[in-house]
Amino acid sequence: MKNNRFVERSITGALSFFKDAIFADEEALKKGFLQARDARLKMLMVFVLILAALFSKSIVFIAGIYAFCVILALASSINIIFFLKRTWFFIPLFSLCIALPALFDIFSPGEKFLSFKVFFVPLSITKQGLSSAGIFFARVLTSVSLCVLLSVTTRHYVLLKALRVFRAPQVFVMTLGMCCRYVYLFIEIIQNTYMAIKSRAGGVFGIKNSQGVVAWNIAALWQRSYVMHNRVYEAMLSRGYSGEPKVIEEFDFTYKDWFWLGTAILILGLSLWQNHYLN
């Protein structure tokens, strides 16, 4: 059964994707602090905070931005366990693994903090290494958390429409919105296809057959996609599409939205000022 685990992994991946997407939409519909903010200004606010973390050279300052992010999540009635699981697992933990060798004097020569021997090989953790790894991990964690916070407090289609604030061409915004919907549809197709294969073949495949099944799925998906685009175009025409996409603007901002965007800009300013001061 070991060889067919790719089927299970792909289905598990698709299912968790669905679960996350549905859960994120549920969170976005809750009455909370960030859910009440205008999507365009909220996106700008998060982007400015990510920039503040990116520019900062101080681990304490980045930790402060992370704390602010967690407070925002709590104020937005986000399930904190879900939020921490989503933000700590994979990218930050993977980054932590990447950062670990940087602790040692092989990669980060400098002032020794701790020396020991592993199988008679002398190793030292340096202060520079600790600092580099710490700031790297803190920055990745904070950025990922801010990004997840934005996506779980904003409905996906609203978030994509809000991209207009960055003057993204309409064709991009329309393509993004449509792409998002097709992703859900395609994942459903893949799930059903895998289920059908498994029910007929009994779930045992060799590596070569497994690769063939994957390629067959991808190619068949492309065939279906190509057939589908004709039908989609006809559906668009029946709804009044005339060759130029139009994005309906439904946004409304209040002084509170501007206040929080101002706060984020202030944090970015502090980050830049602190860099200047540290230099």
């Binding site: 993004l176 449509m178 992703v183 590596i207 998906l221 175009y233 668009m236």
Partner: peptide, 25 residues
Amino acid sequence: AKQVPLLAIAAAFSFVIMMFNVPIP
């Protein structure tokens, strides 16, 4: 104009390809 939805579908297709796990010896 008829091929505009193809772009969105192709983008979704690319997204989904990245979810396929291919077995390696």
